[in-house]
Design a protein around this nucleic acid. Structure first.
Lengths: 238, 238
DNA sequence: GTTTAAGTGTGATTTTTATCACATTTTTCA
DNA sequence: TGAAAAATGTGATAAAAATCACACTTAAAC
């Protein structure tokens, strides 16, 4: 799965394709409107498109054989996602659900491929992008695997702060509401465990909550817990 | 981190770059000999090269702040690895150590970039490759995070069977020797836990051991334990 | 604005995993 | 080949995380 962000205004930590590439992409995409709660695609659908979120929120989820669901990724205004390797794994292995009403730009794989084929420099740009995405996934793998569930949770909170956080006098407010259960699905823990870990962190004044929004009070402590390596912000993100 | 395999003889499950690309790559690489136990590069070194393993074994490791080490990846004859996104994260975030004496083909990032820039079709090929690599990493993330350490171990055994396994009457022999401790470093568990889990699996006749080599006796049971989704073999690999 | 549903908090308990401490086996290499 | 080093196996115990059960709070819907 691939994630690019085109819109500079949403997230300062994100690298961007050049204006030239952006324009070229916009030219080959067509618009689609999706209602909140409906799906862009399902597991098993042919993966021959990229999706550019003009407006709204999309989550990628996967259902496990034992009925649970986990979250692979959440996308925002300006993000681009989908599969590029059309020639081999031709099906999606996950579901994409609109969390809000969305306006989506759809790019046909074929059209993109022609574009890339003709413009080596755009292809190189895309290549660097997917390389970055690979680094992001790789760093998630490390964070979610090697320091227990508490480490996984803390690193996820840091990533959320980097992706959706806004600083203020009291710390960093994470402007995206997430349920405990969703955090659990994201890190592979139960809702209850997440709940207890968050309570602990609140007790230690590392975390706080304000009308449903998470506030990071002590980023350094969070970093300690997950053995943060201070990766560049482009990599340490959702 | 990027991994490509160029050599069709090593692993049948691996997709390959075209002959044209392969030839072009070979032309821009130079050879380097590395002794077993020495390092190709260290964490923090400038990441401006790709490495093609002509002969030997290399492991990528990362040291944690608390003195432990974990294994990100292991590479073999014919594999290509390194970072492509030279323009942003310019340093390696891991170490590359030769496990055996190696002959390495080194490709300068700059040279590669010129090649890609000039040949859109080669760039597209690379792009599909990195996309595939992303899917591999993504699937590892799922396997290592969502079904406990036993699930992580079982999925790793399956991946090893796909990457290094040879079928015979008694099951699938994993032709690459791995220490319990290494498996632990790979899945984020302790040596002792891996040890006990392997013993259990042996007790249940799911696994066996023959002069240091692991034998998978009952692949289906392994798949059950890690809730295997039967991903394509190109994705389910080390 | 009630009523219902969804989400959160927490105790008690079990299962999983890590930790520590050694005995035993296998590998290395002098 | 035989001693030293590395790797494995296993018990006892502690810590982390899951499970079950249910009260409480907040958000949604009528």
């Amino acid at each position: 799965m691939t994630k690019l962000t085109l819109d500079r205004t949403i997230n300062q930590n994100t690298f961007h394709l050049s204006d030239k590439t952006l324009t070229a992409l916009t030219e080959i995409m067509y618009e689609q409107h999706i209602e909140a709660g409906t799906y862009l695609f399902w597991e098993g659908d042919t993966a021959d498109k990229l999706f550019y979120i003009k407006k709204g929120n999309v989550k990628l989820t996967k259902a496990t054989s034992d009925g649970k669901e986990y979250i692979l990724n959440m996308f925002d205004n300006g993000d681009l996602f989908g599969e590029l390797s059309s020639f081999m794994s031709i099906n999606y292995s996950y579901n994409a659900m609109a969390l809000t009403d969305c306006v989506i730009g759809v790019i046909q794989q074929k059209d993109l491929e022609i574009l890339l084929w003709q413009h080596g420099e755009i292809a190189v740009e895309f290549l660097k992008w997917t390389s970055l995405l690979n680094q992001i996934t790789q760093s998630k793998l490390r964070d979610l695997t090697f320091h227990g569930k508490l480490g996984a949770l803390c690193s996820t909170l840091i990533r959320m702060a980097n992706s959706y956080g806004e600083s203020f006098s009291g710390g960093i407010r994470i402007t995206k509401k997430v349920k405990n259960g969703e955090l659990g699905e994201y890190i592979g823990a139960t809702r209850e465990s997440v709940n207890r870990m968050l309570s602990d962190l609140r007790g230690k004044e590392i975390l706080a909550q304000e009308k449903g929004y998470l506030i990071i009070r002590d980023l350094d402590k969070l970093k300690d817990i997950c053995h943060c390596e201070n990766c560049p912000l482009e990599i340490c993100r959702m």
